[in-house]
Design a protein around this nucleic acid. Structure first.
Length: 428
RNA sequence: GGUGAGGUGGAUGAGUGGCUGAAAUCAGUAGUUUGCUAAACUGCCGUACGGGUUAAACUGUACCGCGGGUUCGAAUCCCGCCCUCACCGCCA
């Protein structure tokens, strides 16, 4: 078993200071981990070399014994067997040490998050995120406009109490026009993505540990996922996990790229410890609907692809006629596996709050390294692909904003693009 | 859940203890030939981690679903597990 760092071990060996500098941007608090990795790595390689020598001696001896046997020289073969007897013991001993070193190095290596891209602003928390753009028109709501949880009651769209009875708090029960609105949004989002060239997938909603590790949910976000202990499966926190894992352990050709996938799925998140005033209604739930886009591209194109994905999501928000802003996340607010992330927020006018509805990230080779998803580049060299993904879009907060921003005395006026999907232009 | 068959390189697929890192075919690739297209012929063509080199060459080790075991030596024998396929049972 090799060492599976998310960051290339060669980069750490050759440029430890650069790695530390970038990690500090991501608020990584223990730069000494890098030095520890280097130290263990050196040790590990020495052991590996020692083991190779011993194994080589065994292999050579075994071949000689084979020839002696074939010549009928049993005495010579027996003598050589005796002579070689000690090698086994040595082999066993070195193997144990090597395994220990590998385990140790692996344990350290998986603690390192992906390195942030040069564009990523410094900063420790959401306050330092950089607003790159605002768009859409702010609605002018009358005094006393209702927040979405009241509108949901008014139009009988979601029964939170019964959802709580069935499963627990944070598991909304959509009904009637609420359920239909969900379906309309999912269909519209998928069609919009398909029209842009993404291939639709409908993945498993549970994943095994290998898949969760490959995209970076394990070990970093173990506590965020629902775990089915009896079957060693996790409920997906996002379609990103099953869909990206389509290409785990796959060798691609350059002409296969880019690979562009979209998938609808429910998403399950424990959201442990995040109760409070800010989580009313649809602001934060344990189960929600989302449509995801995922791309696998050649490394030299990934930043351009990221921009294209951002533009794609932005257009979708414009089509929904929602006021939005785009944030470039600072190092401290970014995910573990991401090199650069743009968040999309819509303004939910009655709550007067910005709600995150999409997060578009370039993971560069971090996920691909864990996925072992590689391709042969133009020079015929094997190289890791770059992976990217984003939501287009997550439903509940879109629903919240649509309800709040479009409330009128005669009902909720839906944006034009949804009319055919919803079968009507208004929720009344 | 039961029974049976099977998991080998990018693909198909041979291989039941040493000369097999793995036949053959296809795909790929470099070249030769032919007036183009097509075809034919020849060479090359797995991955990972090391050593070595300016870079190569060269070289060590590991890998034939995964993990153990037997053996001087395992794709090949033994044990456990996973997965796939077929049939049966159960079931939306």
């Amino acid at each position: 078993m090799g060492i599976c760092a998310m960051i290339d071990i060669k980069l750490i060996r050759e440029n430890a200071d650069f790695v530390k500098e970038r990690l500090s941007h991501k608020q990584f608090k223990t730069p000494e981990t890098v030095d520890q990795i280097l130290q263990i790595d050196e040790q590990r390689r020495k052991l590996q070399q020692a083991l190779d020598v011993v194994l080589n001696e065994s292999n050579v001896a075994a071949k000689s014994i084979g020839s002696l046997m074939r010549e009928g020289n049993t005495d010579g073969a027996e003598a050589l067997k005796m002579a070689v007897a000690g090698l086994k013991q040595q082999e066993k001993q070195i193997k144990e040490q090597l395994a220990a070193a590998e385990t140790q190095q692996q344990a350290l290596a998986i603690q390192l998050p992906n390195l942030p891209h040069a564009l990523v602003p410094a900063g420790a928390s959401a306050q330092q995120n950089e607003e790159v753009k605002q768009g859409g028109r702010m609605p002018a709501l009358p005094q006393g406009a209702a927040p979405h949880w009241e509108l949901i009651k008014t139009y009988d769209l979601i029964d939170f109490e019964t959802g709580a009875k069935i499963a627990g708090s944070g598991f909304p029960l959509y009904k009637g026009k609420g359920a239909k609105l969900q379906r309309a949004l999912v269909s519209y989002f998928l069609d919009y993505n398909i029209a842009a060239g993404y291939t639709e997938y409908s993945p498993p909603y549970m994943i095994n540990a290998d898949s969760a590790f490959a995209t970076g949910q394990l070990p970093d976000k173990e506590g965020q996922m629902y775990h089915m202990e009896a079957d060693s499966l996790y409920m997906i926190p996002t379609a990103e996990v099953p869909v990206t894992n389509v290409y785990r352990d796959v060798m691609l050709k350059a002409e296969d790229l880019p690979i562009r996938m979209t998938a609808y799925s429910p998403c399950f998140r424990r959201e442990a410890g995040s109760f409070g005033a800010q989580v009313r209604g649809l602001n934060r739930v344990h189960q929600f609907e989302k449509v995801e886009i995922i791309e696998l591209v050649e490394p030299q194109h990934s930043m351009q692809t990221l921009d294209a994905m951002v533009a794609h999501v932005e257009q979708l928000l414009q089509n929904l006629e929602l006021p939005y802003r785009i944030l470039r996340l600072c190092g401290g607010d970014m995910g573990f596996a991401s090199a650069i992330t743009y968040d999309f927020e819509v303004f939910s006018a009655a709550q007067e709050r910005w709600l995150e509805v999409s997060s578009v990230s370039n993971f560069e080779s971090f996920q691909a390294n864990r996925l072992k998803c590689r391709y042969k580049n133009a020079e015929g060299k094997t190289q890791l692909v770059h992976t990217l993904n984003g939501s287009s879009l997550a439903l509940p907060r879109i629903v919240a904003a649509l309800l709040e921003n479009n409330q009128t005395p005669s009902g909720i006026a839906l944006p034009q693009v949804l009319h055919s999907y919803f079968g009507s232009g208004v929720i009344s």
